[in-house]
Every structure is written in C-alpha cells, then in structure tokens.
Design a protein around this nucleic acid. Structure first.
Ligand SMILES: [Mn+2]
Ligand SMILES: [Mn+2]
Ligand SMILES: [Zn+2]
Ligand SMILES: [Zn+2]
Lengths: 138, 138
DNA sequence: AACAGTAATGAGAATGATTATCATCTTATT
DNA sequence: AATAAGATGATAATCATTCTCATTACTGTT
C-alpha cells in the first residue's frame, strides 16, 4: 500500500514481468530486511505472510529481481548467497569471520577510483562488489 | 626443483602439513597458471602430471592451501570457485560477462583506503576481494 | 464479469559443486 | 625397518540451486 510497493509493481511491469503475490511478498520482505538474508531465510520470512510460497519460487523470484536490477546477490565463499535491495549508494561488505555478521561500508572515493579503472580498460560495470572477511581486533 | 618449490615445501612444513606429491603437484600447477582455474580444470592439469590424483584430493589440497594462506579462492556468482596463488600485490578481478574472461586490476590507493576503513571499524582483514562483472564497451 | 492465452507457481526430482567416509597408502619420526 | 598419524582415492552423501510438469493466477480482451 505504501509508495515503494506501488513503485515496485511498476518496476516489474516495466521489466515485462507479471505482478504476482509471491514477487510482491519477497520484495517487501527484502525491503523491510535490515540484514542480508539468504534464500531459505527468505523462505521462512515469506511463509510468515504466505504459507504456501515455495522455495523454488523464492529462488526464481530472486533471479528475476536480480536480472531486473532491483536486488543484488552477494556470493560468499562458504555459505549460500545472500540478497539485498539494490542500495541507492553502492556499498561493500565486511563479513565477520567469527560471527558471520555482515557490516556495510561505503567510500565514494573507492567507488570513483574503481569506476575509473574499469572504464580505462574499456569496460562498463554490470555489477560489482567487495567482500572483506575480517576479524575483530581485541 | 626450482627455488619456489623448495620454498613451498617449507611453507607446508611451517603450517604443520605433510609434503605430499599431490600437494606439490597442485601447487606447482597453480604457480605456472596464468589464469584462474577452477577445481576440475586443476584436476585435468594435475592429471597430465600424475594421472592417479583424485578430485577429492584437489579439493582437499585447495582448502588446506587456502587455510595456510598460500592460495586464494575466488567465489563467483554463477560458476564454481576459482583459485590462484596468493599474489604479492593484492589485486581485484573483472569478469567479462560475455566471455567469462578474468582480468586483474590493481590500485594501491584503493587498497589503502579499504584497509583504513576496515581498521577504523576495529577489524583486521583476513581476506578480501573485489569482483567486478563488466562488459566491453563497443 | 467471464475468457483466452500465457507466464508463474508448487511439489518434488535432478543437477552440480563440494564435502564426508573409510579402507588403504605415505610421510615423518624413531 | 617399524610405528603412528596424516593423506589419499574411490565413492557416497550433502546441500544449494535449477529444472520439470501439471496446475494456477495474471493480464489484456470481449
Ligand atoms: Mn539460513
Ligand atoms: Mn571447468
Ligand atoms: Zn549490503
Ligand atoms: Zn588474480
């Protein structure tokens, strides 16, 4: 009912996709998420709203939303992929190797430098992310 | 026989690991590699040297070498992980989304800024990598 | 509002990368 | 050479993700 939801329905239509209950549910869960849930975390959250949604649909929805540029997939090294709404300001992630916690960091200067390097090589960025595995210094 | 190989045997010992034929083979293949092979690419290259090596051993060796800090694993979004010798100068990767080609880029300023941000948050970097999916501009 | 066409879904099977098991073989040490 | 511990090869198991297919739900049109 809120503005973002209407906006999201429009984004789906613009991408030539149908506006389904399942897609709306997954997307709204992701909009509310303050963390970076993986597919089966999303399944359990969506099931609190619609208990008939399937894991296959969660995965299909995630692919489709990613291709439409609405969400981003984070490929980690030793655990299932996590997802988040495409952030307005691009940011990178620190994964605390002890706790698994994901922390967001962002630095415009880094983004600028990175973009410049890629352009210099004659490429345009499709997606990009930095994953830092780190441990808290005691 | 060359210097790096002796060095590598020492690195294994220092890590409390046995120096096996298979580990030496996998490591030397990686040292010669100019690309970023995945596990089964490594299996076929190692089999050209030792045709009895198994895929399980390739994976076990890769884990062990990664834990020892001798190699790095690159987690991609839609294909099996790739591996490379831990580079002397840290560098990032562009994956050409059309061809799958991996290009290395490196920028000391970015590394510096990134390290500073992580430190400021009270963390120390365990590993880190930037993956840029990009397409060639025509 | 009912209809037709087609995309999307749910359930579960299949796939593919990676890890685990276990008997056998190597390595390192005495 | 004998020993003990670790590593390997073969293969089964696991787990995340994708696929199949019958059924259902959107969407544009009557
Ligand atoms: Mn989970
Ligand atoms: Mn391959
Ligand atoms: Zn984030
Ligand atoms: Zn590299």
């Amino acid at each position: 009912m809120c503005a973002e939801v209407t906006e999201f329905a429009r984004a789906l239509k613009d991408a030539g996709l149908r506006v389904t209950q399942q897609r709306m549910t997954v997307m709204s869960i992701l909009m509310d998420a303050q963390d970076h849930p993986n597919a089966d975390e999303l399944l359990s959250r969506t099931r609190a709203v619609d208990d008939s949604i399937s894991l296959a649909t969660v995965y299909r929805t995630l692919s489709v939303l990613e291709e439409a540029g609405l969400i981003q997939k984070l490929a980690l090294e030793n655990e299932p992929a996590r997802y988040e709404i495409t952030p307005t300001a691009e940011h990178d992630h620190i994964v605390d190797v002890e706790t698994g916690e994901v922390i967001e960091i962002s630095n415009e200067e880094i983004n600028r430098l990175r973009r410049a390097m890629v352009e210099e090589l004659g490429y345009e960025i499709v997606s990009q992310h930095t994953l830092i595995r780190a441990r808290k210094v005691k």
